[in-house]
Design a protein around this nucleic acid. Structure first.
Length: 467
RNA sequence: GGCGAGUUGGCGGAGUGGUUACGCAGCGGAUUGCAAAUCCGUGUACAGGAGUUCGAUUCUCCUACUCGCCUCCA
């Protein structure tokens, strides 16, 4: 069996992965808050853990892996969007409008991530479907002396959990010293965090022993992972910005309710994404969504390829340059594997690279070697394994384009054979240049003439050529 | 201030205690009506300093720089 090694934030080492139960390998990844379109940064963990999911399925068998990724649909930004709609005169109650907003955002998310070649998890629980479980857990924390009620809020008492801060390597005292946030007066310790908070009448809320309210952010992951994966499971993942406080708080909640459990054995965190060397932010004007890129004609798998070029534990820089190179490489490889059956299983070297802490960049190096060696079947199996569909052209050429392309190719061929006799190549060169201008690649060899789509096709220029 | 990640040839980016990864670009050649594509050849880099070692880019320590988190942003 392939030995998988993973960088474990908990131990700060690369650990050999040993599942609790090889018949049921369990992974929980923190999913998005569904208030708006996913930006490019949101896509990184999705792709990273998609690769891990595929690896686990390959090694343990698809039916022996359970992958859970939640949707956070309790959030002030969702509420704000719903309120705005309500004020604009949209029909329905506010709760319905909240639900609507979440529904549509979830639909976008799945579609956009599907375009990146990400398989959907086995379970994609929504926080709103687990409120009773969160209430129960919160109550249990109070009973066990780890939480207290204050002014309609329920707060987790960080001092009641001795390992608080262990995952992220922080001490409560240091954090208090460096705190930059104003502390609510009802907190016993400034680091105490909210398990439950009151809702106003206008906002979505649920009945609870502490009045009508809504859960704090962290409790949902504790409740849902327990419901779907049990007290202790194998892998917990997410972006490294979640390490503190989100994951720290999840651990505190879960371990205090289930003192015998370790919660998650392996913690994986992906590093952040940057754009052209800078943090993606609205103020810098370099903020964009996955959909923006797709709409600009950047194929989803090009985005996927660029992501996989950088190890998940390193900051990744998104640049147009990389996207261009990725597209060229994918196009080349797809040409190489066209019509070739994939090898029955991915090559051992490829698997070894991925199993070594998801060394996707190393895997790409293996694929370059396969391409160079003309190992089409192996390359195709590699592409399949990493979630690239070789049967789909990088840039789908519409039939309308391909018909005209055929016509132009014939014309070019005729012109060329004439020119070979007359030695006057001016007509050939003119058509060739025009085709290149319109976004095609022209190859003329002894065997004949080939015209291929090579990038952004300018259909208006194509139309002009056909007249 | 606290915690953490990183720094490899023009660019991207693996890997290794001692034998030039690889890709792109570039350069030379083959091929071509010219190109493109393809093929062949071509690259001694590992932030700085100290230490361990027969030997370090690879291990340890220090310094510099970059970046992230500490704000319900993945």
């Amino acid at each position: 069996m392939t030995e998988i090694r993973l960088s474990n934030t908990r131990t700060r080492k690369k650990d050999v992965f040993t599942p609790i139960d090889a018949q049921n390998v369990r992974m929980y990844v923190c999913g998005p808050t569904v208030y708006d379109r996913a930006h490019l940064g949101n896509a990184r963990p999705v792709v990273v853990f998609d690769v891990l999911n595929r690896l686990l399925r390959h090694v343990y068998g698809a039916e022996h892996v359970t992958y859970v990724r939640n949707f956070t649909d309790v959030d002030d930004k969702i509420n704000a969007a719903a309120v705005a709609r309500k004020q604009a005169g949209a029909p329905g109650t506010l709760e319905e409008l909240v639900q609507q907003r979440s529904d549509e955002t979830i639909g976008w998310f799945l579609k956009d991530m599907g375009a990146l070649g990400a398989l959907e998890p086995d379970h994609a629980p929504r926080a709103t479907a687990y409120i009773p479980q969160m209430v129960t857990m919160t109550q249990e924390l109070i009973t066990r002396g780890h939480a207290y009620e204050a002014e309609g809020h329920v707060l987790f008492a960080v001092e009641s959990y001795k390992d608080y801060g262990k995952l992220s390597g922080r001490s409560i005292d240091d954090m208090i010293a460096g705190a930059r946030v104003e502390v609510a007066p009802y907190k016993r310790n400034p680091m105490d965090f909210v398990l439950w908070k009151p809702s106003t009448d206008e906002l979505p809320g649920w009945d609870s022993p502490w009045g009508r309210g809504r859960p704090g952010w962290h409790i949902e992951c504790s409740a849902m992972s327990y419901e779907l994966l049990g007290e202790t499971f194998d892998i917990h993942g997410g972006g490294n910005d979640l390490q503190f406080p989100h994951h720290e708080n999840e651990i505190a909640q879960s371990c205090c309710v289930h003192p015998e459990s370790k919660f998650a054995n392996y913690w994986l965190h992906n590093e952040m994404l940057q754009v052209e060397g800078k943090k993606m932010s609205k103020s810098l004007g370099n903020f964009f969504t996955v959909r923006d890129l797709l709409d600009q004609g950047v194929p989803g798998e090009v985005i996927r390829f660029v992501f996989l070029q950088t190890h998940y534990g390193k900051p990744m820089d998104w640049t147009d340059e990389k996207a261009k190179h990725a597209e060229a490489t994918l196009r080349k490889w797809k040409g190489l594997v066209a019509g070739i059956e994939p090898a029955p299983s991915p090559a051992p070297e490829l698997l070894a690279a991925i199993a070594d802490d998801l060394n996707t960049a190393g895997a790409i190096a293996v694929m370059h070697r396969q391409a160079k060696d003309g190992a089409g079947a192996a390359l195709r199996a590699s592409l399949d394994f990493l979630g690239f569909d070789p049967s789909v052209a990088v840039e789908p050429v519409t039939s309308a384009v391909s018909d005209r392309l055929e016509h132009l190719r014939d014309r070019l061929e005729t012109l060329r054979s004439n020119a070979m006799a007359t030695k006057d190549f001016s007509e050939v060169d003119r058509l060739k240049a025009a085709l290149v201008e319109a976004g095609f690649e022209v190859r003329i060899s002894k065997k004949g003439v080939e015209v291929l789509a090579s990038g952004q096709i300018d259909t208006s220029k194509l139309d002009a050529l056909c007249e």
